[in-house]
Computed example of a mutant assay.
Amino acid sequence: MKLPFSKKEKQIKSKKEKKVKVRTIGKRKKSVLFLWILLISSLAFGIYKNFTAIDQHTIHEREIIETKIMDTNAIESFTRNFVKDYYTWENETEALEERTKKLTNYLTEELQALNVDMVRDDIPTSSTVQGINIWSLTEEKENTFSVIYSVQQKITEEKDSTLTSSTYRIVLYQDDQENLVITQNPTLWNQPEKSSFTPEQVESNGTVESETVEEVTVFLEAFFTSYPTATEQELAYYVKNNALPTIEKDYIFSELINPVFQEQDNQIKAWVTVKYLNETTKATQLSQYELILEKDSNWMIVE
């Protein structure tokens, strides 16, 4: 039979049954709250940047140079025809009137009026064009071109004749239909002269042995002897890669003049002047070649 608990026993049992408190770090703790705020802020900032960021790419700029091919045939032909008519005259009224009429095909109305007194009715000379040289053709601006040319004239006065040569510059306009008109009168100019440039002289540098020099010399003498009259099939025995064209002319080989040889990358580079006699003109022809040779079973010109 169980006896009722005494008051003291009840207190002891109550203490035993009382749960032990467990200390936890809750969401309200300041440090944890700070971490949550930091995490949320970082996430929000990342989303914001994702929507607002501007993509950055490395831009590689490439300059494209377009080559403009200009057909100058029309301008050159127009200029030659003008020069012939402009610098040709006779000291006769009818011929001078015909010249004035021809010039209307080239000059603006203003220039036609300007040139009325160029050749007077009482001019004592006659002129014929002997030759025309066009030195340059330049596009000054869109549809406007300048041409520099020389004209050789035979001037006759009574029974005396003299040759004269002068250089001029004119300006032409070409419209969308490619029609041409001269907008600036022939103006005295200067023509190109001989340049003072002297190319560097090539010399043998001792890289080719004397035995090889003799072999190559014999080969070139044999080749250039047959070269002028050689057909394409015959040329194939001496030349690769169409390094030299067929000539098929009546030239007689005379000699090689001062050939120079250098060894480059197991090949022989040769600079040679070839002396020929032209059977037709009976004049001497001196042809200069810069060749590259190599040896397989025999010597060949490869470039």
Rank of each mutant, 00 (worst) to 15 (best):
E211S: 14
E211I: 13
V213I: 09
E214I: 13
E215V: 12
V216Y: 02
T217V: 02
V218I: 14
V218F: 15
F223N: 06
F224M: 08
F224W: 15
T225S: 06
Y227P: 01
Y227S: 01
P228A: 10
P228R: 10
P228Y: 11
A230T: 14
A230M: 15
T231R: 06
T231M: 02
T231Y: 01
T231K: 08
E232Y: 13
Q233W: 09
Q233F: 11
Q233I: 12
Q233G: 09
L235R: 06
L235G: 06
L235N: 07
Y238H: 13
Y238F: 14
V239A: 01
V239H: 03
V239D: 03
K240N: 05
K240Y: 03
K240D: 06
N241D: 11
N242T: 06
L244F: 10
P245Y: 11
T246G: 08
T246F: 07
I247K: 10
I247L: 13
D250T: 03
Y251V: 10
Y251R: 12
Y251H: 14
I252H: 11
I252E: 14
I252K: 14
I252T: 14
F253H: 00
S254L: 13
L256M: 03
I257Q: 08
I257E: 04
N258K: 05
V260Q: 01
F261Y: 12
F261Q: 04
Q262V: 15
E263G: 02
D265K: 10
D265W: 05
D265R: 08
N266A: 04
I268Y: 00
I268K: 01
W271N: 13
W271C: 08
W271I: 11
V272A: 00
V274H: 09
K275T: 02
N278E: 15
T280L: 13
T280D: 13
T280K: 10
T281F: 15
K282T: 12
K282L: 12
A283W: 05
A283T: 11
A283I: 06
T284H: 06
T284P: 05
T284N: 09
Q285A: 07
L286T: 00
L286A: 02
Q288F: 00
Q288D: 01
E290H: 10
L291T: 04
L291E: 04
I292A: 08
L293E: 07
E294D: 12
E294C: 10
E294S: 14
D296A: 15
N298P: 09
N298M: 13
W299K: 08
